[in-house]
């Protein structure tokens, strides 16, 4: 309850039926015999200032009706047994945000031209204030993101969280995994040093070994028969415009489904049977719709 007072009213946890706080500001019994004290100017100003954040939120809420959605999302029920492994998805999301933010700042100094790309990366690493740090975050963060996604995928797999009705979230997840790998592939060429150049040559040629479509796929990736200037700008555009947009959209869909469907309980948590018979109207659906009796 203490913490609750820090949260602006529109976002506070909705009161359960019968728990309402209507009595807080009850009017005094007789306004004539005991009139309320008149607040001083400073008191009124501080009160106003305290209310300002809530007022702003209320203003937005009156025009968007977003608080119902937000409180529903923030106070949604999670199943018994939810544990640290459930944070791996959010960790992957965090890794993506790190990549997006550091990537934007790298783009401010990077030049996607075959004659200048390498020099611009050296410049970032050697001359720009904190450049090596931001570059390092982006570079190591990319591996971290891939690792976290695989761990998160393992969590959903071993907890059986891919089963009905969450198959579509698994499918979206697979697409996210592929897009993330494509991000890593296209990003690798950008420093344009010997390692990234030859690694991309090898990677593109592996694509080319697919029968019938392979050769055309390589030509598409390279924008021609040889890896060159247009390959670099093509990879750059795919890496910093096309894929991030697609990933953001799909993460949105992924999280929408997580909130809409709720998360799964770990496989070792058994559904509880209601201990007493109760009229259907009093039955709470329980965290997982498992028929757990309502809290008393």
């Amino acid at each position: 309850m203490k913490l609750d007072s820090l949260i602006p009213a529109p976002l506070r946890k909705p009161a359960k039926p019968g728990e309402g706080n209507g009595s807080k500001n009850a009017a005094p019994a007789d306004l004539k015999t005991s009139p309320p004290e008149r607040p001083s100017d400073t008191e009124r100003l501080t009160d106003k200032a305290k209310d300002a954040p809530a007022d702003v939120l209320a203003w937005v809420d009156q025009r968007t009706a977003a608080s119902g959605f937000l409180t529903g999302m923030l106070y949604r029920k999670v199943p018994k047994g939810t544990n640290w492994f459930y944070t791996l998805g959010s960790a992957a999301l965090f890794a993506f945000i790190v990549q997006a933010v550091t990537g934007v700042f790298l783009a401010m100094f990077y030049t996607p031209s075959p004659t200048e790309a390498y020099a611009s990366i050296s410049h970032i690493n050697n001359d720009v204030f904190l450049g090596q740090f931001v570059h390092g975050m982006h570079k190591w963060g990319s591996s971290l993101m891939v690792i976290l996604i695989f761990l998160h995928m393992g969590r959903t797999f071993f907890f059986g969280a891919y089963k009905y009705p969450r198959e579509l979230n698994w499918v979206i997840g697979v697409v996210l995994l592929i897009l993330t790998m494509t991000m890593a592939f296209t990003g690798y060429l950008l420093p344009f040093d010997q390692r990234s150049f030859w690694a991309s040559v090898v990677g593109i040629n592996i694509n080319g070994t697919g029968p019938v479509v392979g050769p055309y796929l390589s030509d598409f990736l390279r924008a021609g028969p040889e890896l060159g200037a247009t390959t670099l700008s093509r990879f750059y555009a795919i890496h910093m415009l096309l894929l991030p947009g697609a990933i953001i959209a799909l993460i949105g869909a992924h999280l929408y489904l997580v909130v809409k469907l709720g998360t799964t309980a770990p496989p070792w948590v058994r559904a509880e049977k209601p201990k007493i018979a109760a009229p259907v109207s009093q039955l709470d659906a329980g965290a997982e719709g498992n028929g757990a009796p309502p809290p008393r």
Binding site: N205, G208, T209, P211, V212, P215
Partner: peptide
Amino acid sequence: RDPGEFTGGIWEYLYP
């Protein structure tokens, strides 16, 4: 042909 692609025989059609 690109590296990784066989040449001759049926491969002339599988790697057009």
